[in-house]
Design a protein around this nucleic acid. Structure first.
Lengths: 225, 225
DNA sequence: TTTTGTGAACTAGTTCACAGCT
DNA sequence: AGCTGTGAACTAGTTCACAAAA
């Protein structure tokens, strides 16, 4: 029932797409849990949240047998498993480098706190930014402190919110300090060594993709859903 | 040489992945252009920016024959073509709904302006937010103004930066006003009718994917690149 | 009966490799 | 000689469909 039959070794590759969906499933389960739902089948989970039932089962099956045939999944139970799989059992400590508009907005975003992310600090080199905490009280420290804290394993993930020209240098610093997971908001491709996970959120690419769609689809196709 | 041999009809599906890469190619070409590079082969473009040469050629071939055999691509020429393909020939007008921290940070982000995006206004319903422009001077209007401006086709893309519970309502409003491209920063899945393009930037999913990677890869595999 | 977990089939996306043009 | 444009081969990702379990 608790299903820990076939846990894959960490060496086996699970795709990024699957990882992202696990996070989505966790959010769905949290919603269901709050609504008092006790068990859910992959089919009804898929119907409620516009997912694919077979894909949900396959994604989960990478990590064990969490379901009960004829019943489905116990919501609270699966939620616990997903939190463990996603490494959310203890707080995940996040540092944000770049205390400009974007860095401060991210630091104050309350959505992160919910799932156990702890924004430890913002980091910058500008003297007039240091010491002026964000509206929600996240402190702004000098990047030198970042190096020390990262080296002392006090940070799990670093968010890059500095202007493009500074980004690669900051990433190098983070990597040298032992950081192994980076979320990058600055445009352009950054280089990281193997064993370090880099995820990019490129706002210009997102907007230009939308613009591309508008430019292509100008004439509306009538027979479309 | 200018290559307009095989322009695909707008009905033909070009994948989102390809669209994103076109944006990346444009950025690369802008860099090369600024550096005074006149022509570039797909091979050297790939080497410089860590891309795949065949993929570059294939992506471009969807839209025409822009290259010259034995030479490569003329940088300025290809840049012009890409800007046209991405719909960036005239300014793209963007409205941001939600004038909180994130909305204001996005409004003031200077990277957008470069490639021809014009942030027309922020929109909100909170009376004490309306009329107080962002640091960079983007005005904050009432959402009623949004409805009017969108209906009058004064906005091309809308960015959603409101709290989760308000998001679907705001999207519905945008869609009813004739908006056909939406960039959503609020968590959770939103519903849009066919013919409307929705792109999600889900920060929680991004962070949890990184956490997943850390949780899996704890024991470092030595024989890895 | 219901629903999982999973091999098989299918679909999408990437990379190779080369004919043909400059 | 050098490089594009593209069919063919390959790889990754998704969906189907069903045997086995509760």
């Amino acid at each position: 029932m608790t299903g820990r039959n076939k846990p894959r070794s960490a060496a086996e590759q699970v795709s990024d797409l699957t990882a992202g969906r696990l996070s989505v499933y966790l959010r769905c389960l949290t919603t269901l849990d709050a609504a008092g739902v006790k068990t859910i089948s992959s089919r009804s989970l898929a119907e409620r949240f516009h997912l694919n039932a077979a894909q949900i089962r396959k994604d989960l099956a990478y990590f064990g047998e969490f379901g009960v045939r004829g019943v489905g999944y116990y919501v609270a139970d699966l939620k616990t498993h997903l939190r463990a799989i996603l490494g959310l059992e203890k707080p995940v400590r996040v540092g944000i480098i770049g205390a400009g508009n974007l860095g401060r907005a991210l630091a104050d975003y309350q959505g992160f706190r919910v799932e156990g992310f702890h924004i430890v600090a913002l980091f910058d080199t500008e003297p007039n930014r240091i010491g002026h905490p964000s509206r929600q009280g996240v402190p702004v420290r000098h990047v030198d402190d970042f190096t020390r804290m990262a080296a002392a394993q006090e940070l799990d993930i670093v968010v890059i919110a500095v202007p493009e020209p500074a980004a690669q240098g900051v990433v190098n610093l983070a990597v040298e300090s032992g950081i192994r997971a980076i979320l990058n908001f600055s445009p352009g491709a950054l280089q990281v060594p193997g064993g370090v996970k880099l995820k990019n959120v490129d706002l210009t690419v997102s907007l230009e993709s939308l613009s591309f769609f508008l430019a292509r689809g100008e004439q509306h196709v009538p027979g479309e859903t």
